[in-house]
Amino acid sequence: MSDVMFSVNENTFKAVFNKLYPTVKLPFDGSNALGPVWFGVEGEVHLENAGDIDFEDSDTFFLSEQKIGWDKLVLRLGFNLPTITVGKFCVLRMPDDAPILGGECLVEFPGGELFGGNPDIGPIVLNLNAIIPYVVSEISGRYKIGIRKDGDYQKIYADVQAIDVHPISVQDTVGKLPGLVQAAVYAASYQMLALIPYTWLVDVVLGLLGFPTITQYLLNLLDIESDMEAWLMKVLNQSIGVDNLLYEQIFNAVLSKDEVFKIDDPYPFVPEITAKTADYGGFPKPVLTPTFKIPKVAALVENASVRFDEDNMIVSFDFGMI
């Protein structure tokens, strides 16, 4: 049996955790190319309160439904259009029955190439700040509880063991996303028209590509087949892998967090007191030392431990002599 033992229940622990662990703004950025389209993202998030905390057996607890608050979300698009070769053909070919190089092309007309840039179009900026209230994302994580001596304290830490950033969900209930996507596609169309500034050449190119308009060609490259929410979620979660970008930032942020609780070590029972000598009796003559100090009474904290027991965090320690 320890000299001291106290418990903290889950609700109190959650209240303390939610006061300490929400983070300041965490900026992040990343990019990825997927076929002819390049995606870049720039964002800023912060951690909000945890939805639930469950104490597990031994020394871990599981945190779920911790919301990620979005402060900034900007998507960038670039198009590396497939190179189109117009009019490449063989001018002179060796006869098939020639003794050498039978059937080979001797003189080739190279034709002309379009879209040799990298990227040809972009970056096109989609400022998604208008829809960040509808971007839903959360994390869950497992933390290990521990107690360590640090200076004049025994500190109880929640050390992160694992974090799982859930796929981002977009619920554009006010319908702002289509307008943003349309604006981006129009911007990309203008840039593509700058590459092929003749209307007749646009129609030649579209004929070779098999699309009636530039807009439809770009929508096909972007792979917007179903609704735009599904497209944006696919871009953020799969094409860019925002969860990995967030994971790194959040993991580092919670890793640097301070203690959840702390206990003075040495543990003070009675503080140092300055007392008046006169208060301690009727001296016939005035005393030479009108005040004196009563030293503090404290004990070392020894054998400190912390563990979970059902719905309580149990902290225990012994007192030792200074």
Binding site: K88, F89, V91, G207, L208, G210, P212
Partner: peptide, 18 residues
């Protein structure tokens, strides 16, 4: 001839033979 896109909807034109 002008490549009218209405004549080739859903088709991808090939570079014609020289």
């Amino acid at each position: 001839l002008y490549p009218d896109p209405r004549d080739s909807i859903g088709k991808r034109l090939k570079n014609p033979d020289s």
